[in-house]
Design a protein around this nucleic acid. Sequence first.
DNA 1: GCCAACGTTGGC
DNA 2: GCCAACGTTGGC
Length: 154
Amino acid sequence: MQYWLVKSEPDECGIDDFLHSPKTSIPWDGVRNFQARNFLKQMGLGDAVILYHSSCRHIGISGQLQVTRTAYDDPLQFQLDSPYFDAKSTLERPRWVAVDMVYTHKFTTLVPLATLKLQPALSECYLLTHKRLSVMPLTFTEFTLMQKLGGLTH
DNA sequence: GCCAACGTTGGC
DNA sequence: GCCAACGTTGGC
């Protein structure tokens, strides 16, 4: 079992998009950064994922997802009309992968970035040390603290 | 293989 | 809308 955090603009795909189709797996595609892609490839079935809302009015972590399909070739890289088309990808040598995720929990409150920055236990986490990365691992400690801040208890 | 220019992310 | 950070590209 591994723990991850992914970023998305809620206008594109936020926690409510997952909440509104709670049993439907949604492709996490369009990742076009090599470090982020490499983390996507490491995701395992059933891994837990924190969703972060970026570039929006309320920046912060919003809920929890689960991996339902591990890495497969991102079809968008082959679609000419997609903004995620990549001329350097071929069917023989695709460059980019997607995974599928499903809704598991929405936090009782969105935890703002400012709150996360105040946590000493999160000072070393990828979210705060690698500003522009959109897919990243979390330690178990970081993950459970984020869950707790989000109002989820088990 | 270096590194300057360029483009994108994402907070503010 | 600005701009810092930083990943990527391409000339040499």
